[in-house]
Amino acid sequence: MIKAVMVMNTQGKPRLTKFYEFLPVEKQQGIIRTVFGVLCSRAENVSNFMEADSIFGPDSRLVYKHYATLYFVFVFDSSENELAMLDLIQVFVETLDKCFRNVCELDIVFNYSKLHTILDEIIFGGQVLETSSAEVMKVVEEISRQESASNSIGLVTKTVSGWRNR
């Protein structure tokens, strides 16, 4: 079971947080702070695991990957394989890359809900349901199609940026 997915930048700002068991916001904030505190103290070129029992309770493992300005962090229990989780981070990032063409932090900042859509296709309620980024892309495109279809039916966009973009 996967317990949490976090994406944060190298300043410790969260970019995406998903906890598969309910946690109050204060706890979430504390956890992100603690995890970041450990991550930023670690050298490059060391293994990608981190002791997580003290943060997430017994039987917790944590892997992370550092890409450019972002940390991708997965927390899980003994029903998952550590190396497979590292691969899964890779799958997630590859999908983002396909979706945004050379993904960078800004894409992730501005595409909050799309990020959730992608992640939900890969991890479903804590279980890994899809590991092929091509399959994920198919569904994500389908969802985007649905979204734009429903939007075109709607009235004139009312948001400021909606006006500006015309």
Binding site: V109, F110, Y112, S113, K158, T159, V160, S161, G162
Partner: peptide
């Protein structure tokens, strides 16, 4: 207010 509601992008 309702006409010029800020979108999520504006907030970001």
């Amino acid at each position: 207010d309702s006409l010029f509601q800020r979108s999520l992008d504006d907030i970001i």
